[in-house]
Design a protein around this nucleic acid. Sequence first.
DNA 1: TAGTGGTCTAGACCACCGG
DNA 2: CGGTGGTCTAGACCACTAG
Lengths: 248, 248
Amino acid sequence: MTAERVMPAETANPGFRPLYRQVKDLLLKRIGDGIWSPGALIPSEQQIAAELGVSQGTVRKALDEMTSERLLTRRQGRGTFVARHDEARILFQFFKIVPESGVAIFPESELRRTENARADEEERSVLKLAPGDRVVRITRVRSLGGKPVISEYLSLPARLFPGLGEDIPIENNLYELYSSRFGITVSGGQERVKAIAAPPEDAQLLGLPPGAPVLAIDRVAVALDGTPVEWRRTLCQTADCAYVSDLR
Amino acid sequence: MTAERVMPAETANPGFRPLYRQVKDLLLKRIGDGIWSPGALIPSEQQIAAELGVSQGTVRKALDEMTSERLLTRRQGRGTFVARHDEARILFQFFKIVPESGVAIFPESELRRTENARADEEERSVLKLAPGDRVVRITRVRSLGGKPVISEYLSLPARLFPGLGEDIPIENNLYELYSSRFGITVSGGQERVKAIAAPPEDAQLLGLPPGAPVLAIDRVAVALDGTPVEWRRTLCQTADCAYVSDLR
DNA sequence: TAGTGGTCTAGACCACCGG
DNA sequence: CGGTGGTCTAGACCACTAG
């Protein structure tokens, strides 16, 4: 591993990048390229350090950062693993809708429609697509404890998910599916929440009177490299549940 | 600093607590007790290490954790400071309402009422108060760029904020006020967001038709030791703004 | 130039897991 | 038992700030 510190003079350090970040970038690439798949045990700190010619402490710092970003999970005595999008992780990192009384649970899903179509203007803008690019659209209703609370609309870049909705079935845990079937690791995202009057169709699906207030949650999910890979609009009734956010 | 490692046998480590966490607890106590106030420069890593008889690396690990929790800010070449609740921090950590187009800005506030009253059942439950305890209630309207978008109701334990709303004026940046006038450091909180039909009074304040959908954001803010110190209900119209949450 | 935090190294020992 | 991550130490040097 070559560091800029071998060239200490003259530059006044314009593009200084610490060694542990270079290590991290390299490890990120191995995950993004599928060399290390979700769930896999990666080499030990000592092995990585020896391979790259850096100290164990430097590797540790890189792994610590990736762990804090939920990309890795470490287990003392066992090793370091690439994080999977299991239900526990989804619940903790991505699913913010919690029943009024009780703890968060993973919702059931009922698929309504899938569709492959040319992306409209809004989809192109949100997903950063080119004119003519196609999207896969998915519509479903999600329930907590048997009661429908969510009407959800997703748009995905068709190029990244070939065959999705055709020969490849839509599972409940989509991010696990993205990872296992398409090699796409969702690493984060942003949600914008608004209050709107429920459109008639969604109100009916959720058993609400027409025009009842619901949450409209727009999420753009991104892959490891920051590319948008999913846009979803979640309409959620909040009589029996709430959108929960921790301020940390 | 005494560590459990001086007693390695027999216990099989039931209450093992790493040295750096003991250091952290001690430093947290100094902030909570007001020995180090927000904005203050704390001693250097070397000084703390020497004082406590641990290595600099151990102190560093404690400080790193506290920095990641936004309790400290570190500036290379200057030192380590206790974090203040300045507008930049509020905006980043606590204020999730962002204008539709444009970047987050700190809202203006117009105070409507203050009141000192016996806590009702809901306030006692949320703020963990005893029967008979009193609360300070604050009502205000907040605007973004001159346009009212938020109607807000706060309840605070009166015991923790003596004189608030009487001789002590209500500033716009409340958490800065809690800290500077009452020695209370808000370290985090949780928000529960629902969609409701705006009550008539709030609709009028926000210039909305009666019954328009608005966000109802219930926040419980906690001090360093986890004690609830504020309950606020924020009603927010989302025609021109949205509640934004990062999934990390 | 002195002092701070930031990086990097090397090595020791502890806690935990599996075979 | 050996191997893993977790903690702790000691020391070197770099990057940055202030006076």
